[in-house]
Nucleic acid binder design. Structure first.
Length: 296
DNA sequence: AGATTTACCTGAGGGC
DNA sequence: TGCCCTCA
DNA sequence: GTAAATC
């Protein structure tokens, strides 16, 4: 699941190879992965433009082209990788005892799940592969960026300059209901998904089902501190690869090796030793420590 | 307004 | 080997 | 992972 750290990992990996390069041709094999515009128009408009800058907002990836902004969202299983024509493809798949059958790390030729290809000048490519097809791409005029709803409704950027406690508290107090639901909604805070939400809640000692209106000031403070910490650790570890996530060069992340709670239900809490519990919150599997995270 | 449910897809893994 | 189920 | 429909 590409969340903020995974998208950031891809952005950093693509940056040195793609910024300043011209997209010669766009090959869209699964037209529905482009939204808000006719597939043919998308390909025609993107073709010929130079990628000036690549960045990220929440879980969205942004490519600033000469005349447009290309917006990508990787959904649950999207992979955006660089294919270098001078490198050999790594062949085949490998079985992993925990996460099952995985593609070998490294670059691969397009396959049945490769739905969008940006052919660069010189023969290299940026390839979008998405097994579950939940990701999507869209092309905006620079002026449309501000008014674009899904982007405009995103909350605070946890690693950005406006990450200050007063702003965080205001955004959070504007909502009620379960704290984890709020985190997943992207609206007080942008970029957290099921993994990093659970991680941040555990690090801050907040129960995922706590109602926001009942949280104490110190709980909010702890959450405010924990969110950037778990995200930065994810980035430092180049993302969390449970199944599908790959970096810009096909490499796996290693954050899955140091998760505090996600995927560890039944195992012992690393902080207190109690057995971690699994519950359902907002229709998402949620793991927490009943000792460290008292319900408010 | 928030919550709950459903839909959008493919594949891994377990049980039988 | 395959079918059905759950889960991501 | 998100959006739309429904309570």
């Amino acid at each position: 699941m590409p969340e903020l750290p995974e998208v950031e990992t891809i952005v950093r990996g693509l940056k040195p190879r793609v910024e300043g390069r011209r997209i010669e041709r766009v090959e869209l094999r699964l037209p529905k992965q482009v939204r808000g515009m006719d597939a043919a128009a998308f390909c025609r408009l993107v073709g010929g433009q130079v990628v000036r800058r690549i960045s990220r907002r929440g879980k969205y990836l942004l490519m600033f082209l000469d005349r447009h902004v290309l917006l990508g969202h990787l959904g649950m299983s999207g992979q955006l990788t660089y294919w270098d024509r001078t490198r050999k493809d790594t062949p085949g798949f490998v079985a992993h005892p925990v996460t099952g059958l995985q593609r070998t790390p490294g670059q691969h030729a397009p396959d049945a799940h490769t739905h969008l290809l940006f052919h660069l000048e010189g023969g290299d490519r940026v390839q979008y592969r998405d097994i579950r097809q939940f990701g999507h791409w869209r092309l905006l005029e620079p002026g449309q960026l501000e008014g674009f709803k899904p982007l405009a409704r995103l909350g605070l950027e946890p690693l950005g300059p406006d990450w200050r406690f007063d702003a965080f508290r205001r955004a959070f107090r504007a909502r009620r209901g379960m704290v984890k639901a709020a985190l997943l909604s992207q609206s007080p805070v942008a970029g957290l998904g099921n993994i990093y939400a659970d991680e941040a809640l555990h690090l801050s000692g907040v129960h995922p089902r706590s109602r926001i209106e009942r949280l104490r000031e110190k709980d909010l403070r702890a959450l405010f501190d924990a969110i950037p910490r778990v995200l930065r650790k994810g980035i430092r570890n180049r993302g969390t690869t449970l199944m599908d996530f790959r970096g810009a060069h096909g490499e796996k992340g290693r954050n899955q090796e140091s998760l505090r709670v996600y995927g560890r239900h039944g195992a012992n809490c690393l902080a207190c030793g109690a057995a971690l519990r699994k519950i359902l919150v907002s229709q998402r599997t949620t793991v927490f420590c009943p000792r460290c995270q008292p319900k408010r």
